[in-house]
Design a protein around this nucleic acid. Sequence first.
RNA 1: GGCCCUUUGGAGAAGCGGUUAACUCAUCAGGUUUUCAUCCUGCCACGCGUGGGUUCGAAUCCCGCAAGGGUCACCA
Length: 557
Amino acid sequence: MPFNYEDLAELIFPEVKETVADLEKRFPPRDLPNDAFVTRFAPSPTGFLHTGSLFTALIAKTFAKQTNGVYFFRLEDTDQKREVKGTGDKLCHELARFGVVQNEGYMGDSKSEVGLYGPYVQSKRADIYKICVKELIKKGRAYPCFCTKEDLDELRAVQEMSKVIPGYYGEYAKCRNLKLAEVKKLIKEGKPYIIRFKSNGDHNNFIKVHDMVRGELTLSENDQDVVIMKSDGLPTYHFAHVCDDHFMRTNLVTRGEEWLASLPIHIELFAAMGFEAPNYAHLPVIMVNDSETHNKRKLSKRKDMEASVSYFIEQGYPVMGLIKYLLTIANSNFEEWLMAHPTDDVDNFKLSFSKMSLDGALFDLPKLNDISKNVIAYMTKEELFDKSLEYAKEFSMELLNFINEDKEKYLKILNIERGGEKPRKDYVKYSDIYQKVSFFSNSIYESRFTKDLPFPENLTKDDVKAVLTRFLEKMDYKVDEQTWFNDIMKGIAKELNYALSPKDYKKEPQNYKGHIGDVAACVRVAVCLSTNSPNLYQVLQILGEKEVTRRVKKVIE
RNA sequence: GGCCCUUUGGAGAAGCGGUUAACUCAUCAGGUUUUCAUCCUGCCACGCGUGGGUUCGAAUCCCGCAAGGGUCACCA
């Protein structure tokens, strides 16, 4: 009497009445153009958003968007031991912050799911997996396994000793051969079990697989009887991936290259289920150079600040800075495009698999800084105002207080040398703003004021006093920058015997007290308390006559 | 250890059998500017992991080796 798989299936899943055919009807193929990609981001809710995850999600979203497809979000919470409650929502929030917003799926918070292919949370799909497993058992392609942890350890030990490939497969898969009566007995006894896939593969056979990034790959067939359903009734990643991506009609799976090794399992699983496998794109993983070993390794949340997306938010990096940086890693031609279109929407850039590098890029903070600096430089003053205010509210009390002191003034400050072909580029991140412009605040000026200001060292106190006195007398706030500099500043220089240019001074230093730079420095230090500042003319204009006079007088006295 | 993937400078990389081996960042050296930030110019691979081959000619094609990464769970 041959083994009756039908009976086995009924024995294990008596309550399951639906079939895969029913599921096919429930989740019909999507009505989309042929070349539209259906992609997804499918994290497990175990922590905050990892920079590598943002990278993967960004790519998935972008391919869906540029093909008028669908990008959805699925929560893979089948490992209840590792799950950290609430992180699914956090992941959604952080992604949304970077403009990576799903068209459908799990939407975060208590918001209901969007889309017809749900539920989009794996723990809520147990019935679906059971239907699929039952089908596989009926086909003789899955079976219950009663092996304990100890059994498996022992098996492994034996295999290692005899130097065969370890694992549950072929002749070592002893539960494969259990008779129906035995299974019945064990189940009746309440023995815990899992369901394994029965592989038909042979390790010595090779399959050709196409990867969107890597092209044609030759991989060994899977021969492992992998676990597809755990003792808690939830599926393992391998099986959930196959069922979900089939019934959610995903046609492009983007994931990290660490999944390449298990691709043969997935290929065989899809075939056994009678499903067409999706396109795969195994993406390079972002790496970092380990300072101790000097070797490359994956960005690690424990060791590297840059591994957490929240780090960039807290530091005040503009969202677009990180996105653009990640795109330079994703596609080598993105930088050229960016230079040609510094202010364009990045959605206008066409991402392609052919321009994707095959090995993991080292995360490069200086590069991010450069990109970020440009992002901020090309913002309008209103945009920077809003974004930095938002940042301040969340992370910087001092900046928030500064802004609130005089919002109109803050807007003017942000506008210094902004706009035009060659904008000023002095902020890499929002958190840089405060330290560069806080001197504008009258109260901060007071608190920082000291008798020992960094005036040019070649000048005496009396020299400084003389310059500042003349400055107060001659200063005119109505004239334009050219006039101010040529008439007023150079005028003072001439009167007090300073060279009108550093060059003149260099030629004959003995003839002068200093040069025009020293004159400007006196004013700058008196007004800003620092040897460097943004454009002095604009600083004076923004502070206004009353305040400038007050500050200069305070220094003179 | 087995298997798989990868390999152009300090970093991201272009390159697809004949180029002075693009471009960007960083560094360094100059220049412009009243400071800073900009901006401009220049230097930085006699070499494309390494050894062989094929070819008139190789970073580009073939083979071996090495190194780095990944993976071998009732984790994803």
